[in-house]
């Protein structure tokens, strides 16, 4: 699954660590999410999208 987390995160000038802290996950989880190697739960996808100020469908490309 592709994600646009990195792109939106860069626009907000957030580091992976900052995003991870805001979402409440480890930095490694954000890394794997950005690489598209981890399929998040709906809750996590919602939280990430919320922090990035986007909709889930915009952040996660199925």
């Amino acid at each position: 699954m592709k994600t646009r987390i990195k792109e939106f995160r860069a626009k907000l000038k957030l580091t992976q660590e900052e995003l991870a802290n805001k979402v409440g996950v480890r930095r490694e989880t954000i890394i794997f999410l950005e690489q598209g190697k981890y399929n998040p739960s709906l809750q996590l996808a919602h939280d990430v999208a919320k922090v990035l100020g986007k909709k889930i469908k915009d952040v996660f490309v199925f």
Binding site: A20, G24, R26, E28, T29, Y38, P40, L44
Partner: peptide, 8 residues
């Protein structure tokens, strides 16, 4: 302090 998230 370590965070336990859904992946871990």
């Amino acid at each position: 302090e370590r965070i336990t998230d859904e992946r871990t």
